[in-house]
Structure formats: structure tokens, C-alpha cells
């Protein structure tokens, strides 16, 4: 009798075991997902990544953990996502630099190496001057620069970076010669501006939000088609008198290694979209002045293809175009 009961229990246990494992095989995810951030902790991309997945458990049922794999202008971290095992448990933040690696001959890596998940934000450049600057409008700066070529110092966050290319393409089109001063990131650029060490700074518009609100600098234009909701007084580049049909944006998005199974991609795409729409994340992005723009995988791919087309002539104009064939 006891033996029989024991047997029944065993059979039952085995059966439960089977059903459970069957369930698991179809279910994704069953363990934590890793989100690789190619930039260091505390930086802009890192902050966004961490804020994005803060409530991930609600939508995925598991945690999404941010791991910083930095170095090589982001190529190390982004490259490690592209070559990771395509089981959906490793995804990564991909950023603007991915659009330039191949064109600048830095690394054979582009958006084509990923199963794209979505675009997260698309930030326009801004041109600002110190609050005490004699220039009130972008036109005054451009006119002065035209008369005095190579005199106006323009700080940006690194050669070949989005903000360098953004201002360089505008300058080239309008036949203006600036004296470019590359800094190591946006923070030292804006500090140099309010310290009076450079005449003009190009940064992401969100990166000067705090200083702008404090009245320490004046933003002359935003390099976009529309005004920015947090900076309603700042004119667009066209309104400032320099129409720009294809402005260069900084962007951040999410990608998985190429070859993640279709059904898992669907889970990732849906889950991250929910994270993206989480009120807490939206609120933080609002505070940061970060223009959130959602694009699904197809739209994202189209956007990235267009970005490369825009960047090619811009890189050529500053002599940094060395594409890997």
C-alpha cells in the first residue's frame, strides 16, 4: 500500500516535472536579462539605461540588469552585444557612435550587426553662448565668423562626435570657418563655455538644460525641425536663418545580437516598449529634457540608414571619412 502511494507520488512528480519543463521551454525569459551599456556608470547613456529598466520586472517578470562594458568609444560594449549568444538574454544600448565606426574606419561594426529592438531617444544639437556674450543671435555669430574666418572658437564634445559633425555640416553649407576646440565630453565643454574659454559651444540641448534655466548661458538655436518643448523660446535652426534639411541627431536605442529567435524578439520588443512607456521613465526623461522618440525595429532601421547617409558628407567635410569597405 505504502509502496503504491509512493509510486503514485513519483509518477505524479515526474508528470508535474514534465509539464513544468515543457512550460519553461516555451516561456521566455526565465532568468534575468543583461543590458550592456557601452558607456561608463554615471554617464548619460548609463542613466537612461538604468532608468529604463528600473521597473522591468513588472513587464518581463524578471530583472533586467545593467552591466557597463566600456572602452573603445563604445565599440567594445556594442561589439560584445553584436557577438553575444543570440538567446535573447543579452541585449545592449546602442548609441550614435555606431553610425560612425564604419565610416571613420574605427571598427567594422554597424546597425546591420544587430536585431534592432527600438529607438529610445533622438536629441538635437544646440548652439549656445555664455550669458555675457556680445552675440544675441546665431546670425550675428555666423556673420562675424564669415568676416573673420577661423577666429570664433567652437567647443564640442570630441572630433567625429555628433555635435562636432552637427555644427561642421552647418558651417560647411554656409561657408563659414570656425576654430574647433574638441573637449572630452559635454560636461567640460559647457564648463569651458560659462568659464569664458570658448565663444560658442555645441552640445545636446538637454545637456545645457540646468545652466540654461539658471541663466548662465544663452541658447542661440536648436538643430531640429521643431522647437523643443522645454525650451520654447529657443528658435529652430531654420528660424535662426540657416535652414538645415538633414540635421544630425544624437540617438540611443536598443539592440540584440543578430539571430535571436523570432518569438523571443517579440517578447523583448514588447517588454522594452512597456518599460519605455512606464510613467516613471517618462517623467525622468521629461526632467532631463530628453526627447523620447519611439521607433519600432523597421522604423529604427530606416532611421539608422538615413543617419549614415547624412553623416557621410559631414565626415568628409571635416576630413574624417575613411570608410571600411
Amino acid at each position: 500500500m505504502l509502496k503504491k502511494i509512493g509510486l503514485m507520488f513519483t509518477v505524479a512528480a515526474v508528470m508535474i516535472g514534465f509539464t513544468v519543463t515543457n512550460g519553461i521551454a516555451a516561456k521566455f525569459p526565465t532568468k534575468d536579462i543583461t543590458l550592456i551599456c557601452p558607456w561608463s556608470a554615471g554617464g548619460g547613456t548609463d542613466t537612461i539605461a538604468r532608468a529604463l529598466v528600473k521597473n522591468a520586472k513588472k513587464y518581463f517578470g524578471v530583472n533586467v540588469n545593467v552591466v557597463n562594458k566600456t572602452g573603445g568609444m563604445g565599440a567594445v560594449g556594442m561589439g560584445s552585444v553584436a557577438t553575444a549568444r543570440p538567446d535573447g538574454y543579452i541585449v545592449g544600448m546602442i548609441t550614435f557612435q555606431l553610425s560612425t565606426f564604419r565610416l571613420m574606419g574605427l571598427a567594422d561594426l554597424s546597425y546591420r550587426d544587430y536585431s534592432l529592438i527600438q529607438l529610445v531617444n533622438r536629441s538635437p544639437a544646440s548652439m549656445s553662448v555664455d550669458a555675457e556674450s556680445r552675440w544675441q543671435t546665431l546670425k550675428q555669430v555666423m556673420d562675424y565668423a564669415k568676416e573673420n574666418p577661423g577666429i570664433v572658437t567652437v567647443g564640442h564634445s570630441g572630433a567625429g562626435g555628433g555635435w562636432h559633425l552637427a555644427i561642421a555640416s552647418i558651417a560647411t553649407v554656409n561657408k563659414v570657418k570656425f576654430n574647433y576646440v574638441p573637449f572630452d565630453g559635454a560636461a567640460p565643454t559647457r564648463t569651458a563655455l560659462i568659464g569664458g574659454h570658448i565663444d560658442l559651444a555645441t552640445t545636446g540641448i538637454d545637456e545645457v538644460l540646468e545652466l540654461y534655466k539658471a541663466g548662465m548661458l544663452r541658447i542661440l538655436a536648436v538643430n531640429a525641425f521643431e522647437r523643443h518643448p522645454l525650451f520654447p523660446e529657443v528658435p529652430t535652426i531654420a528660424e535662426a536663418g540657416f535652414p538645415n534639411p538633414s540635421p544630425i541627431f544624437d540617438w540611443r536605442g536598443l539592440g540584440a545580437p543578430e539571430g535571436v529567435p523570432e518569438d523571443r524578439m517579440e517578447v523583448l520588443i514588447k517588454g522594452f516598449k512597456q518599460c519605455f512607456e512606464d510613467p516613471e521613465f517618462v517623467k525622468l526623461a521629461d526632467q532631463l529634457g530628453l526627447p523620447l522618440v519611439y521607433k519600432d525595429p523597421e522604423g529604427f532601421e530606416e532611421f539608422l540608414a538615413g543617419m549614415e547617409e547624412t553623416l557621410e558628407p559631414a565626415l568628409e567635410s571635416v576630413g574624417l571619412l575613411k570608410p571600411i569597405e
Binding site: 572602452g71 573603445g72 567594445v76
Partner: peptide, 9 residues
Amino acid sequence: SRDLLGGVT
């Protein structure tokens, strides 16, 4: 080398 792009850490 892609790893050396960021320099010696």
C-alpha cells in the same frame, strides 16, 4: 584592435 581603441585602461 578594437579593444585598444579606448587606450590602456
